[in-house]
Design a protein around this nucleic acid. Sequence first.
DNA 1: CTTGACCTTCCAACGATGGAAGGGTTCAGG
DNA 2: CCTGAACCCTTCCATCGTTGGAAGGTCAAG
Lengths: 151, 151
Amino acid sequence: MNIGDVAKATGISAKMIRYYEETGLIRAALRTYSGYRVYSENDIQTLRFVRRSRDLGFTVKQIDDLLTLWRDRDRASADVKQIALGHAAALEKKMRELKEMTETLRHLASNCHGDNRPDCPILMSLGNIEPEAPQPQRRDRSKTRGFERVS
Amino acid sequence: MNIGDVAKATGISAKMIRYYEETGLIRAALRTYSGYRVYSENDIQTLRFVRRSRDLGFTVKQIDDLLTLWRDRDRASADVKQIALGHAAALEKKMRELKEMTETLRHLASNCHGDNRPDCPILMSLGNIEPEAPQPQRRDRSKTRGFERVS
DNA sequence: CTTGACCTTCCAACGATGGAAGGGTTCAGG
DNA sequence: CCTGAACCCTTCCATCGTTGGAAGGTCAAG
């Protein structure tokens, strides 16, 4: 399988696949005599894992740690277990926090649904923000403040 | 409260606080006559929220969206609800995937615990990777491949 | 007055990603 | 067999977002 096929199969651009190889995230692919990279099903699975992780917001470094986990089964199993459990715990913490945020969001959504009464406690705590308080612009502060918000 | 105190209180560097202000993520702080930024408890809460979100892997843009949600209670409430629910759904999807990964990790940890038998199905599927297959290095491929892995 | 905190502006850097240039390889169809 | 399209290769450069550092200057408080 050539890199293009893999790109199609995994949703990772050929560019990034090469980059991942260069930085050591994935092992260097075998090559044909002419230098073309060739990939196995296994490689594709690995790359799919990478993609999933990236989508989840993991940094390449973190993914590297994870991949090292599966790969290094020559390492002391206790180590692997330790690390894996550590990662799992971290992920679960992240999940809890994510859940918290989700709940906050849902709370926001349900509490401020149809009327515009400012009685939503979240708005109270985070939002009572005066629109444009006239700042005491003592000195020339008219710099480059028209920043391009891509929003 | 000066920016230094806020930095201490929120764990965000003064540098980044100014940056967030400059890019519009947070509202421009009020100023003393001499130009010092002054912050309220509210600002601190907002910044804590920002920090939490950053830790969770949200991009500044995404946080901006979220913050806009609480702030813009003048907007049509239906909109806000819509967006909030959309975000919540996305977060929950992320959580599910995170959960999947966590389970995979735990699975890995428990299946490859004390012995070194390579019978872990995850290792089977992701890991049967020959260590250093002698590549057919046809042409001069001895470039800058000693890349600095900070690991 | 001196020291530490603040201000701005500019520059550097990193991680992740894409693009273009310049050149070889593959393979189907003429 | 030849050739052109579609790949692939490398190298260099550019961007975007986030973060830090240094320089040069003002301000606050002991």
